[in-house]
Amino acid sequence: MSPLRAGIAFLLVVLVAALAYFGAETAAVRPLLADILPYAALVIFLAGFSFKVIRWAWSPVPFRIPTTCGQQKSLPWIKANRLDNPSTKTGAWGRMALEVLCFRSLFRNTRAELREGPRIAYSEDKFLWLAALAFHWSLLFILLRHLRFFLLPVPHWLLGMSALDGFFQVGAPGLYITDGVIFLALLYLLARRFWDAQVRYLSLLADYFALFLLLGLVLTGIQMRYSDRVDLERVKEFALSLTVLSPHISAAVAPLFFVHLTFVCVLLAYIPFSKLMHLGGVFLSPTRNLANNSRIQRHINPWNPPVKVHTYAEWEDEFREKIRAAGLPLEKE
């Protein structure tokens, strides 16, 4: 029941927001949310992240995975696809870079439809790719721009980035392009799970939770910037106090900021235990990071038990006389 899953995920996010909002107004909880939660979230994130990565790194990957989307390198007159089916390390790096920066595998996304007949028809569906790309690049921009709260003096490249993002100079504080883009992209990614019956069937609570959480994070941020402004100087003071490990937050900072902050912390702590871990996982995907050189180099499974083999040469030695007597050809006379 997908609507139920979506509803539960939504309520969970609302619950987090409510806890943060009322916590910020409760003297006993406020310091907990501001001074302890961010560090706890960071520690959980880093520990969980390492745990996952180390477990992946330590699992043996004895073979190359040749299920790729391009022609393997073979005979010189057959054109090989060097990026989709790389036979060299450089090629594998190229494939990984394209995957991480351009989401190349999403570009291949197709949609299956039942037409009259009935017959099945496949069509291209580039919107998932477009929305995912728009979302992730905006997120990167927003995260980097947020560094202005944590760094003093604010570096020049950061100012340049903010200026680029605020290129259209609409209003004050200036509208950031990425704010609109990330919001629309998230809306599409969510709507897609409702509209498309097949995707709806596949969607789990965790899928909706991640989307609602990000949407909540982005919406509270947008609200803070364009309507219910908070005291940014005090927010920066708080952010800087976090960086020197002596956190304190002014009473002047509004509860809305706490909702934003708590969303961040929940997201951070949630990453290692969820599908969002693809942040690290993509780099360790055997289908992306291994050159397919199985025809060039022999890969031996390290935990194969020693196999007793009897080669043809040995077999021929054993039966040489009999073979010769029967008049059969011998490889070695």
């Binding site: 960071l42 944590f150 003093l152 800087l240 960086t243 020197v244 490990l245």
Partner: peptide, 15 residues
């Protein structure tokens, strides 16, 4: 990820 912490260590006097 922890870059702001290292950055602040160098700037501690002027925060």
């Amino acid at each position: 990820v922890t870059f702001p912490l290292w950055h602040s260590v160098g700037m501690r006097h002027s925060l």
